[in-house]
Nucleic acid binder design. Structure first.
Lengths: 211, 211
DNA sequence: ATAAACAAAAATGTATACAAAATAATGAAA
DNA sequence: TTTCATTATTTTGTATACATTTTTGTTTAT
């Protein structure tokens, strides 16, 4: 399923992907100083495409002030606040007119979420939210959420690895509300779901802080 | 009040400002093809800073696919949908804890809105919304709205120039709700306000389309 | 020892050059 | 004329060089 991204023939795109992954993997932990020339030498490109990739990473919030981001608790709250608004709306929209096909896809995400490997569960989680976001039918909204994707990923990892209880149950409840065409409930459940995610993240963040 | 922006010493920043203004003024109307070398020659910079400025303009949605954006009705609806969610939330937040000082500033915007010149009215309008957005206390949300600012401007111009009725009255109602610390009403009024803006824009858009 | 001032080094912003890719233009065949 | 293929031409993506600016490190004076 790893489709060939035609953009990958661009050095800038490749650099973006490598650096992004390094940040998400923890190979370049929060606070790491970003030096164009150093990265250029390391990745074997010139500074020009590196600079372009850094712009994108800045845009996504993974790099701030020439340093790898170190999201604070406040950042996390802000992020979930915006998500809550946009994904809550999307859930309501999904309840109004999500096609049968997508409903099945949602259902499948839940199934994988219960039975899959860690890797599969993470993918299924992401897909679940993605389908609902797409249902908003609003390109700007979709784009705005995508912009937050990398940082969301940074946290989603935590949530899944630490095995948050009721995660999939909540997805299922949302799914049921959408299927029942109950927009208000879907929205409310999505907001609650994200709030619980936030709380769980904060809890883990604070308990591992002094480790 | 025109403070010196220290970034303006950068060619990339200057280029950004010039090109953005050209687009907003209509000097580069929707659909205009963007050619790096042409702009570089025109503005007297090399391509490098031009490219950087174009990335920013892409990010803000003023340039799409190497062409100056031509927002469709759908784009306009999408934009106002997102604004409605974010600014509605912000209005509620403002009602909860907007300091006296900002309340006065809001009040002043309304006053200018009734008595000022076109130029002043446009500024006051922008400021009114800006104060409320800031009240969200959410840097990500603020940034997201700012990202839409240029396109919003493109339309706000229409609204003010065509003198939309009740515009300032609605601002005043929102102000009153915030002052009364009535968050739900403030939110509802803001959403209604933006919806009316949207309708007005659409009306003008459609009536001037075949002119 | 601390702070201020300076020199050295590193890093960034910009200009330019060139190769690859995309687009436009030309001409031959249907 | 239309359609396709093949050249030209333009435009973009990348590499490299250089000049400021920023940062770092060292020295000097308090």
């Amino acid at each position: 399923m790893t489709q060939y991204d035609k953009n990958s023939r661009f050095a800038s795109k490749q650099a973006y992907e490598v650096i992004r992954d390094r940040i998400l993997n923890g190979d370049m932990p929060g606070g790491t100083k970003i030096v164009e020339e150093k990265l250029a030498a390391e990745l074997g490109f010139s500074r020009t495409p590196i600079r372009e990739s850094l712009r994108q990473l800045n845009y996504e919030g993974l790099i701030v002030n020439k340093k790898v981001v170190q999201p604070t608790e406040k950042d996390l709250r802000n992020l979930f606040q915006v998500r809550s608004l946009l994904e809550g709306f999307s859930a309501k929209a999904a309840a109004t007119y999500l096609p049968e096909e997508d409903l099945n896809a949602l259902s499948n995400c839940i199934k994988v979420g219960r039975e899959g490997t860690i890797e599969e569960i993470m993918d299924a989680n992401e897909r679940f939210h993605e389908i609902i976001v797409q249902a908003s039918g609003n390109a700007l909204m979709i784009d705005t959420i995508h912009r937050m994707k990398s940082i969301i990923y940074l946290f989603r990892k935590t949530v899944v690895l630490y095995n948050r209880p009721r995660l999939i149950d909540e997805h299922e409840e949302i799914y049921e509300a959408i299927k029942a065409r109950d927009g208000e409930t879907a929205k409310q459940l999505m907001e609650d779901h994200l709030n619980k995610d936030l709380d769980f993240c904060l809890q883990i963040l604070n308990s591992t802080k002094n480790a």
